[in-house]
């Protein structure tokens, strides 16, 4: 799976996993104490001896917004000229009405809850976030805006990378095996659109399995097997022959 030069280990806060001079790829999760590289979260530490790089992939944690991130937000507040969205970050996000409606609004004449009410689901992109203010999201872009169909499957934001997989392999597998539309967003809310309820259940179970077993190698094969088995069990396909 990886080159021989990369070592992987499960680390906990305060645990030193490398010594010497390396480039730190994940500065939020690695600190340097007395020439040693120490993890600050529970995660998988990777040491690449060839490239002299270290990184820690966290296994726990909340979503930290980055500009350009695709997120699914729930409306939690309606203001005069903006909405407040819960995007599972430590800060709630702002969506301006000008941005969403594409025209200026007059708060004296219009009530924004006409367009988006508390509880609505919005697919948006993080526009700016610089920690001195809360994130601002935009719905300008293809496919962005209010979500009117489909189901949201929530997983831990740190496990998102595994649902996408190397070069999108896991994502392709999920879509290919179930025939559902799967949109993986950075804040761990996965938007799924399925032809029927049975397939949706199988897909949701598969996604939750990925979340649970994210740190155990050989995930893609296990998930593929799991989906086929579940489909056979539910009578969605006749047997192994139709699986591929």
């Amino acid at each position: 799976m990886e080159s021989q030069e990369t070592h992987r280990a499960l680390v906990v806060p305060g645990e030193a996993f490398a010594e010497g001079n390396y480039k730190v790829l994940t500065p939020s999760y690695v600190i340097r104490v007395n020439k040693k590289y120490v993890a600050t979260v529970v995660g998988l530490a990777q040491v690449n001896e060839e490239a002299k790089e270290v990184s820690v992939i966290p296994l726990e944690g909340s979503y930290v917004p980055q500009p350009e991130d695709l997120v699914v937000g729930y409306v939690v507040g309606v203001g005069l000229t903006s909405w407040e969205l819960d995007i599972r970050a430590p800060f709630s996000a702002t969506l301006y009405a000008v941005d969403f409606l594409g025209r200026p609004v007059n708060p004296a004449k219009e009530d924004l809850s006409k367009y988006l009410a508390v509880g609505d689901t919005v697919l948006a992109k993080v526009e700016v976030f610089d920690r001195s203010r809360g994130p601002i999201v935009t719905t300008r872009g293809k496919g962005l805006g209010k979500v009117t169909r489909g189901t949201v499957v929530e997983i831990s934001p740190v496990k998102v990378a595994r649902v996408i997989g190397r070069k999108g392999s896991m994502h392709q597998l999920l879509e290919g095996e179930t025939g559902c539309e799967v949109l993986v967003t950075r804040n761990g809310r996965i938007l799924v659109n399925c032809p029927n309820k049975e397939l949706e259940d199988v897909l949701a179970m598969a996604i939750l399995k990925i979340e649970r077993e994210a740190h155990i190698p050989g995930l893609t094969d296990r998930v593929k097997e799991f989906i086929i088995r579940e489909k056979v069990r539910r009578g969605l396909i006749g047997g192994e022959a139709e699986a591929d």
Binding site: V12, G14, E60
Partner: peptide, 11 residues
């Protein structure tokens, strides 16, 4: 705190 994924220098 560690279980919540809050970055810590040590336990």
């Amino acid at each position: 705190l560690a279980d919540a994924g809050v970055p810590m220098r040590d336990l």
